Amino acid sequence: MFRRDPLQAARRELEAVLGGDVRPALPLLRLALRRGGVVGAARGGRVAVVGVGGVPEDGVFELASVTKPFTAALAGALVREGRLAWEAPLARLGGPFRGLPDFLTPRALATHTAGLPPHPARAALTTFTRFQDPYGGMDAPAALASARRWASRRGAGRFVYSNLGVGVLALALAHAAGEEVSAAGYGRALARYVTGPLGVPGVGLTPPARGLVAPTATLLGEGGVTGFGPLAGAGGLFGTAGELLAFGEAHLDGRAGKHWREVSQPPGLPPHLHGAAPGWFVRGGVWWHGGVARGTRTALAFAPQSGAVVTLLVRGGVPLLGARGGVEAAALELLAASSPLRAPAT
């Protein structure tokens, strides 16, 4: 007997939602999902979520850097509440943020243009000595001290992707929301202002006792979840495909605010990007973000013109060799099926 192709079985469900031919995306999806995962699409009130390779459709994954759009959504909510201003230096928040350079603003941190390096300096070592938890030896004061020390006025305004920057932003958002300056404080603020109001309360910093999709082991790790320490706002959330689709839809219907529409083209932007918005990358009318944990990978993308959202959550983490962007590429090719330029499948 021939084994049924799970992606061919899912094809009709995805096409019914996206309204176009998903066959061009199947080779990339098959490669991304070779160890199993979940693919989902939503559009106009219709949703399709399909588990592949024995992974349940409601499996919980590490969201890794897909956390960053949630952090940006929290910033947007606090701006709307009058607790924060996009262009105001974090130093104006006072307390532990006093003394930070004036070019460290919420917008600059959310768009990776704050003149900060990708990681705290110690991560050059802990990436190998603490592979599963490279930031775990730090606390919030140490993260802020790192930002204070390594912020470059010369680099401010130039795009440099920075976990340190978004992690520091999340700590500032906790403070602005009246919470303690910690990952836990960020989590409470996120629940109050974002995940609760948007109807995705299952997204959070603590993995569930059951339902977590076990990450794959690597040469440097044992397959446990990835720790982000005080920089949890850059990559520490957990969630399901259905929750990510709902979060994406909240951007399209306005419930998540309009911050994501504020797109800039800073110098240093990689050539495959057309712009950066708070929490998002932009290319060809698509807003997206990907994430690479130690044993899982994620992607979330939406297209305002078509009203479609897609997500991809897969087992198999950071590659030691080769390109990192295969999961994002698969999600973007799938989203292209919602384009009015792609004909429906026959």
Rank of each mutant, 00 (worst) to 15 (best):
N163R: 06
G59V: 14
R315A: 02
T311N: 04
P319I: 10
L321E: 13
P101F: 09
Y193P: 01
R149S: 08
V160D: 05
L125N: 01
T111R: 13
Y135Q: 02
R23I: 01
A145P: 09
H274V: 08
D139G: 11
W280I: 00
L100K: 12
R297Q: 09
Y161F: 13
R80Y: 02
V292Y: 00
E13M: 02
S146I: 07
G54A: 04
F70V: 02
G307W: 00
R294L: 00
L312Q: 00
G54K: 05
D253Y: 00
R83C: 08
G211L: 14
A48F: 05
L18R: 09
P207F: 04
G45A: 12
P27G: 03
L335P: 11
Q265D: 14
D102P: 15
H119A: 07
Y161S: 06
A183W: 02
E333M: 12
D133S: 11
G40E: 10
E243Y: 04
G19Q: 11
L273G: 11
G202H: 01
E62W: 12
L220Y: 09
V66N: 06
L313W: 09
P230K: 09
G268W: 07
V168T: 08
H112N: 13
G99P: 07
A189Q: 15
E57A: 15
G187R: 05
T71F: 13
A72Y: 08
A88R: 15
D5L: 11
R342S: 09
D5F: 12
G290C: 03
A330Q: 14
E179T: 10
T111S: 10
T67H: 06
V314E: 00
R34F: 05
R158Y: 10
P271A: 15
L104N: 09
S146H: 12
R46C: 12
L104D: 03
A108F: 11
P101I: 02
L14D: 04
L78M: 01
P266M: 07
Y135N: 07
H112K: 07
G268H: 06
L7Q: 05
P266Q: 09
A172L: 02
V286W: 01
A343T: 07
A301I: 10
L29M: 11
